[in-house]
């Protein structure tokens, strides 16, 4: 899954522009990912000018069967 280092984020929106799932929320003061929708494509990680994202090799959106 993609981890966010919020302290590095400048809230610029570059990641939002390349996110194919439109699952990054950027308010005036916060960044967050909707992990249910995120597919771990890592485009945000590569596009970010400030190295805010870090890919951790574990699946974020595994649904536990009921």
């Amino acid at each position: 899954m993609i981890e966010i280092h919020e302290d590095k984020c400048d809230l610029c929106g570059c990641c939002v522009g390349v996110c194919p799932e439109n699952c990054i929320d950027l308010t005036e003061s916060r960044i967050s990912i909707e992990y249910d929708i995120c597919t771990d494509c890592r485009k945000c990680e590569w596009a970010c000018p400030f190295e805010v994202f870090e890919f951790k090799n574990q699946r974020a959106n595994v649904k536990v069967p009921a």
């Binding site: 570059c14 390349v18 485009k43 596009a47 000018p49 400030f50």
Partner: peptide
């Protein structure tokens, strides 16, 4: 959505 090829990442 902007492709990776077309997005310029700036500082």
């Amino acid at each position: 959505t902007v492709s990776m090829h077309d997005m310029e990442s700036a500082a």
